[in-house]
Every structure is written in C-alpha cells, then in structure tokens.
Design a protein around this nucleic acid. Sequence first.
DNA 1: TTAAAATAAGATAAAAATATCCGAAATAGA
DNA 2: TCTATTTCGGATATTTTTATCTTATTTTAA
Lengths: 144, 144
Amino acid sequence: MVSKACEHGIRAVIYIAAQSFEGKRAKIADIVQHSGSPEAFTAKVLGELTKHRIIQSHTGPRGGFEMNAEKLKTVHIGHIVQAIDGDALYINCGLGLSQCNAMYPCPVHDKYVIIRNEIKEMHITTTIFELAMAYRSGKTVLSR
Amino acid sequence: MVSKACEHGIRAVIYIAAQSFEGKRAKIADIVQHSGSPEAFTAKVLGELTKHRIIQSHTGPRGGFEMNAEKLKTVHIGHIVQAIDGDALYINCGLGLSQCNAMYPCPVHDKYVIIRNEIKEMHITTTIFELAMAYRSGKTVLSR
DNA sequence: TTAAAATAAGATAAAAATATCCGAAATAGA
DNA sequence: TCTATTTCGGATATTTTTATCTTATTTTAA
Ligand code: FES
Ligand code: FES
C-alpha cells in the first residue's frame, strides 16, 4: 500500500505533532523510541519531510523536530505519502499497465478506480492533528 | 498494493482463461506476448499457480496452460493474490505495526480497516471468468 | 524410437527498497 | 570562545523483489 519509509514517516510525524501540541521539540532518539522505527532510516525520511516543509528541524542542543501551528492544522496523510512515495498510489494502474487509461481500461479498472479514490479520499481527509490527538489521549498506539 | 509477480499472474490467468473458454491451451510465449509480461518471470509465477491448482499445465507439443471448467467458474482475484503474495494485504496493519489489533489500534486502524475490507471484498467478488469475458469481447486490454 | 516442443526447477543477476554508518555543519549554553 | 548536542548529507551495506539464464524433465507427434 504505502512504503515502509512512508509508514515510518507517518508514525514519526504523529509523534512530533503530539509533542509540538505541548510546545516541545522531538529529537530523533525520542521519536524512534516511541514510534518503533529504525533510527537512521527514520532520520533520512524526516530530512525529506523537512525539505518538503511538512515539519521543521533545528540543529544543536534543544534542537529537534517540530510542527508549527499552521502545519499542525493543515497537514494530512496524503501530504506525507505524496512527499515520500510520490503519486504512484493515486494514479497507477491496478494491474501494472504502464498507465491507467479509462478509454482503454485494464480488466480491473472500474473496480480498482473506486478503491483507489477511496484511499485518496481517506488520505486527504485524515489530518495529522486528529491522529496526534487520539494518540495523545492514549486511544491509539504507535508501536507494539 | 499487490506485487509485480501478482500483477503478471493475474494478467496471465485472464489470458489463459479467455483461451480456455475457446478450448485452446495457451503457451508461455503466447501469454507474455498478449499480457506484456517478462517471459521467465511469468513462467515462474505460473508454476506457482499450477502448484496451487488454480491453473493446469501440460508439457510437450500441443502443451501449454489451461483452466478447467470448474476453475474457470470459481476462481477469483483473491485466490491469485493469496497464492502469490499471501494474506499480508488482507491482515497487515496500515501503519506497519507488527500486527493489526483492534484492541490496541494504530492511529489509522478504523479508517484503514474499512479500505482493507473493501479491497478484500473486491478481490473475492471479482471472478476471473467475468474479467476474461470482458477481455475477450475487446472491452478491456491486458497491455499497452 | 526419436526429435521437437513445452514446462519445471534451481542458480544467478540486476534493481529497488530498506537500513546503517560516519564525518560535517549548526547551535545553544557555559 | 569552547563544548556538548543535535540534525544533515553522502557513502555504504543488507535485504527483498524482480528478472533472467541454464539445464533437466515430460509429453507427444511423426
Ligand atoms: S487501466 Fe488499470 S486501473 Fe485503470
Ligand atoms: S492496528 Fe494498524 S491497521 Fe489495525
């Protein structure tokens, strides 16, 4: 569905968002401890998300990652998937043809497009903020 | 979503099914020419599907792959996905946690389970027969 | 009986995804 | 200014997926 890199990124951002909501910055060691992701790989993914301005980073003591108030409100899962995996999930053919084309559809096109749009819709309507709040309240977990 | 191996397998089986409907066996060279898949890789996948009794194979001159009448009626996409990729797509956690657990859900569990079940339902209710008929009639394509 | 036509299977190769390592750069605070 | 802390970035390593190659085996038509 989405890559491991993307999964690590989403979990990390949820943790960062929860910390940012409390005015704290999150450092890598802390993030991976709570999200159960490999440290170096997650650091690389977070670097990519920083480039895309989805999160902000600060070097040095008291540094770490944070999400500013505006991003905290507006960022949704789709932003992260797009930044890490690109738009393949949202546009590719479900049977692996070189491109999806409704004029000359593959055998699963009609049924696949429905699913694909639901995934896209779900990603766009699910904000990091709501996920971070549920995590903060203990209703959900980031590792097991 | 599903692996390349699985995509090659599904496209190949649709072609085999369409040929079987006309009482013809399909040989590998023919299959990959029409489904646009790499020959050796597809042969390996078809071997796996033969082991799972989803298709039948015959060596020698006049040999090739075919689908018997019973399989032609009953096999659906889910059978092929299960045989090649296993059940990961149907049971894994959407955020990559070691397992999906509704008692201690990950942040996307509720929304992801809905999508996951729709995919499963789509796979189970989509028969190779209906896909093969649409392909045979020219309504859909297997390569581009 | 034999040669051709086909799949079967295992070894190998290439590419992509996942993950780690380490030195450099930046920064806050003493 | 010095030092400890932290991310950054590039090189490297490992694993998995995708794909190919080679040889063996089976089947059948002539
Ligand atoms: S052509 Fe395959 S999903 Fe659209
Ligand atoms: S726990 Fe993540 S999808 Fe169920």
